[in-house]
């Protein structure tokens, strides 16, 4: 499971032994931003208000920053294991714009809570149609 930023940087090494990657984007977002997910209520709403950030990165995947790490992790991982299976299992796995990103970086699957499954299926189809 890839949740620590360092793991994305040495993903080629990990993929030598790991047969699949699953990006835990809740922790990855937490550690990349240095935001404690349990403590964001005190400042994230104001950050959004002041337009310092556009959206809550725990709800909508931050493609600019966290996304770069994911992309790097997928590329590096597949550089040593070309058939590496890759998925995502954070909250983002059920959010349409994040799903579209997962599709673009070449993930094999997304995983989300049961009630989000139809949403993810449709979003995955739309991602394929939009590309």
């Amino acid at each position: 499971m890839i949740e620590v930023p360092r793991a994305t940087l040495i993903a080629d090494q990990i993929a030598e032994n790991a047969e699949f990657f699953s990006f835990g984007t809740n922790d990855l977002t937490q550690m990349t931003f240095g935001f404690s997910r349990d403590d964001i209520a005190s400042f994230v709403p104001e950050y959004i208000e002041k337009k310092i950030i556009e959206k809550d990165p725990f709800q909508v995947l931050d493609q600019e920053g966290v996304g770069q790490l994911i992309k790097l992790g997928v590329e590096k991982g597949r550089s040593t294991r070309s058939d590496l299976k890759v998925g995502i299992c954070g909250e983002h796995g059920g959010e349409p714009s994040s799903i579209e990103f997962c599709y673009r970086v070449g993930m094999n699957y997304v995983s989300c809570s049961p009630f989000r499954v139809p949403i993810a299926r449709l979003a995955a189809a739309q991602a394929a149609l939009k590309s």
């Binding site: 998925g87 299992c89 796995g93 799903i99 997962c102 599709y103 993930m107 094999n108 699957y109 997304v110 995983s111 989300c112 809570s113 049961p114 499954v117 139809p118 993810a120 299926r121 449709l122 995955a124 189809a125 991602a127 394929a128 149609l129």
Partner: peptide, 16 residues
């Protein structure tokens, strides 16, 4: 609609 979605998508959907 769901059947149609699966027809056009290549990425699988699993669950937590």
């Amino acid at each position: 609609l769901m059947t149609l979605a699966d027809k056009y998508s290549s990425m699988k959907v699993r669950t937590n």
